[in-house]
Amino acid sequence: MKLITHNMLTSKCLKGVMTGYPLAINATDVKVKEVDFNPEFITRVIPKLDWEVLWVAANSIGHGEGLPKTLEPKFEEDEDLLKRVHKVLLEVEVEEGNLTCPESGRQFPISKGIPNMLLTEAEVQ
């Protein structure tokens, strides 16, 4: 699971959970896989991100280095920053671990890089 995906996922499917966001990451295996850099795409994605959530998530798995806590305006002119965001969003991958719902504490496993957000039949009754 990449952090761009983490930034978009919630556990609001759970009964009684309001936003279910952001999910806490508990990673036991994190890999970095190189991916082609596309500055236009990163520039387009940044406004869609919850920046603070990305910053916390990146730091929680030890890849927050060089990522500013708040985003300056005109970020699109700073290629260095775009490259760092690119790396954090698309190259860092949580292979094994858990996502935890901030409200209920329900855990969703990540195995072989794929998060499993399925509930049990008991939870959807």
């Binding site: 699971m1 978009m8 996922l9 556990s11 957000m117 399925l118 509930l119």
Partner: peptide, 23 residues
């Protein structure tokens, strides 16, 4: 085209997990 692979998620579409403001 692996560079443009984001992720796949095991999820039930009737109770999906995407942030409500995601477009």
């Amino acid at each position: 085209t692996e560079s443009r692979y984001l992720d796949v998620v095991v999820s039930d579409f009737s109770l999906h997990n995407w942030r409500s403001d995601l477009k």
